Amino acid sequence: MASDGVVVEIGKVTGSVGTTVEIPVYFRGVPSKGIANCDFVFRYDPNVLEIIGIDPGDIIVDPNPTKSFDTAIYPDRKIIVFLFAEDSGTGAYAITKDGVFAKIRATVKSSAPGYITFDEVGGFADNDLVEQKVSFIDGGVNVGNATPTKGATPTNTATPTK
C-alpha cells in the first residue's frame, strides 16, 4: 500500500443473489490541510450489481451534504461517478479525517463476483488547492465463495486525467 498520499479503498462485503448490500468507500491518509475537492470514477458490471443509491459517509460534515457531495450512476456506461467540492468557501466542510467517504447500496443480481474497480481520477486537492497523490484499492461483493480481489494492489495516480 502507498505510504504517502490519500488511499481510496472500496470495501469488500459478502452478499447473495437478491440481497441488498452496503459497500463502503474509505479514505485513508487524509492530509493535515484536509480535502477540499476530489472527483473520480469507479467501474462495475450492472449485470452483477444493480447500484440503487449512494449515501455520504461520516467524513462528509456539510450539514447539507447534497451541496458538497454528488454522485451519478450510469449503468449503460458501467460507471459510478463521485464528486466532492467543499461548499462553505472557508474550508469548514472539508474532509479532515480518515473514514467512510461514501456507502454504495447495491442489489446482487448474479452469482458472479461483484467487482467495483477504479477507472479514472480527475483530481484530489487540499484546502490550499494543492494537488494530492492518490491511490485506489478495488473491492466489491463476495457472492458465495467468490472473492472480488482483482486489482487489490493500489493504483498510483500522480496526475489528473480527463
Rank of each mutant, 00 (worst) to 15 (best):
G18Y: 04
D128C: 04
P31T: 04
T147L: 13
K97L: 10
L49W: 02
K133I: 06
G53D: 06
N145F: 15
E9Q: 10
K33D: 02
S16W: 01
F82D: 01
N156P: 13
F42I: 02
G91W: 01
A125W: 00
S111K: 15
S3W: 09
K67P: 14
K133E: 05
P65T: 14
E50W: 03
D119H: 03
S32P: 08
K67I: 09
A125H: 00
V30E: 03
K150R: 09
V143L: 12
I59V: 14
R43S: 05
T96H: 11
V30S: 14
E131R: 01
G139F: 10
G139W: 10
G18P: 12
T155H: 10
T155P: 10
V48H: 04
E50Y: 09
F124G: 00
D70F: 15
V100T: 09
V143C: 07
G34I: 03
N156H: 13
V25C: 02
T117S: 10
S3T: 03
P31F: 05
E120V: 03
N156W: 10
T161C: 14
V48W: 15
L49M: 02
V48E: 03
T71Y: 04
F69I: 03
S111V: 03
P75N: 05
R105Y: 14
N64A: 08
V30A: 10
K103M: 14
T66M: 05
N64P: 11
D62T: 15
K78H: 06
P148S: 04
S32H: 11
T117L: 09
I60K: 15
D98Q: 15
P46G: 03
F82T: 01
P63I: 12
V7H: 09
L129T: 02
S32T: 10
A94S: 05
I10G: 05
G57A: 12
D119L: 05
N142P: 12
N156G: 08
D58Q: 08
P56F: 11
T107M: 08
I116S: 09
V8G: 07
N156I: 09
A146E: 13
V143P: 12
V41R: 00
A85N: 00
F118C: 07
K67Q: 12
G151S: 11
N145C: 12
F101N: 11
G114E: 09
V143D: 14
I35S: 03
T157A: 09
G144E: 08
V17Q: 09
A94D: 03
N64C: 10
V141R: 12
T96G: 11
P148T: 05
S110C: 07
A85W: 10
L83T: 00
G139A: 12
V8S: 11
E131H: 02
G34K: 05
D55M: 15
I104T: 11
G57F: 15
V121G: 13
C38V: 02
V81N: 00
T96V: 12
E131I: 01
T71L: 05
I79R: 01
F40M: 03
N145V: 15
D128G: 07
I23F: 05
F82E: 02
A146S: 09
N127I: 02
V143G: 10
N127Y: 02
D45L: 12
E22I: 04
I79N: 01
G15H: 13
I54S: 03
A94K: 04
I23H: 13
I51R: 11
G11W: 15
T153Q: 12
G99H: 05
V61Q: 12
G34Y: 04
G53Y: 03
F136V: 04
I79Q: 01
I52R: 07
V13K: 11
D45M: 08
Y74S: 00
P160G: 12
F40C: 02
P24G: 06
I35Y: 02
N127E: 03
E86A: 01
V141M: 13
L83M: 02
F118D: 13
V25T: 06
I10P: 06
D62A: 15
A94Y: 00
T90E: 02
L83G: 01
G18W: 03
P46F: 09
A92F: 08
A36T: 03
D98I: 05
P148A: 06
E86K: 01
I51G: 04
G151M: 10
G34D: 15
P63A: 14
V100P: 06
S88A: 06
C38I: 00
K97T: 09
N64I: 05
F124W: 01
I60S: 10
G140Q: 14
R43P: 03
D126C: 01
E131P: 04
T149Q: 09
V6S: 03
G99S: 14
P160Y: 09
T153F: 15
Y44W: 15
E86I: 00
G11S: 08
S32F: 05
N64D: 06
I59F: 14
F118H: 03
P160D: 12
V81P: 02
T96Y: 10
D70S: 14
V7I: 15
G18T: 10
F82Y: 15
V21K: 13
T153G: 14
P160M: 07
V108E: 09
R28M: 04
G18Q: 08
T159W: 14
N64W: 08
G18V: 09
V7D: 08
D98W: 04
V6E: 11
T19P: 11
A152S: 10
S68V: 15
D39I: 00
K67L: 08
Y93G: 14
D4E: 03
I79G: 02
T159G: 09
I59S: 12
I35D: 04
I51D: 10
N142D: 09
T71G: 00
V130L: 07
P113S: 04
I23W: 15
T149N: 13
T107I: 06
N142C: 11
A85D: 00
V7A: 10
A85C: 04
K103W: 13
A72K: 00
P65N: 12
C38L: 02
T153M: 06
V17I: 03
E50V: 08
S32K: 08
V17S: 08
R77N: 00
V108W: 05
D62V: 14
V48A: 09
I73L: 04
E50L: 06
D55A: 11
P56D: 11
Y26A: 05
K109H: 09
I60T: 14
T107S: 10
Y74H: 02
T159A: 09
G57P: 11
F136W: 11
T19E: 01
R105V: 14
I104H: 05
T90R: 15
V141K: 13
T147V: 12
F69Q: 02
S135D: 07
S110H: 12
G57R: 15
G89F: 03
Y44D: 05
V141L: 13
V13A: 07
R77K: 01
P154N: 11
I116K: 01
S16L: 11
A102H: 04
D98V: 04
E22H: 05
E131A: 03
T90N: 06
G53H: 11
V17P: 08
S111C: 14
Y26T: 07
I95A: 10
F27K: 02
D138Y: 08
I95S: 12
Q132Y: 01
G53N: 08
E131C: 01
Q132E: 02
I116P: 01
I23A: 09
V130A: 07
E50R: 07
S111Y: 03
K78Y: 14
A112V: 08
A72T: 00
P24L: 03
V8F: 00
C38P: 00
K109N: 11
T66V: 14
S110V: 11
V7L: 10
T157Y: 12
V21G: 05
S111E: 10
A72L: 00
A152C: 13
F118N: 10
T71K: 06
E22M: 15
A146L: 09
F101R: 00
T161M: 10
I10C: 07
I80Y: 10
P75L: 03
D76L: 02
R105K: 12
I35A: 08
G123P: 00
I95V: 04
L83V: 01
T149G: 12
P160H: 14
V21I: 07
I80S: 14
Q132S: 05
G57C: 11
P113M: 02
F84I: 01
P75Y: 13
P75C: 04
I52T: 10
V7G: 04
D119G: 06
F124D: 00
A36M: 01
E120A: 04
F82A: 01
E50D: 12
T117C: 15
P46E: 04
P65D: 15
A94Q: 03
K103T: 08
S68C: 14
G18K: 07
V143F: 14
L83F: 02
T66K: 05
A125Y: 00
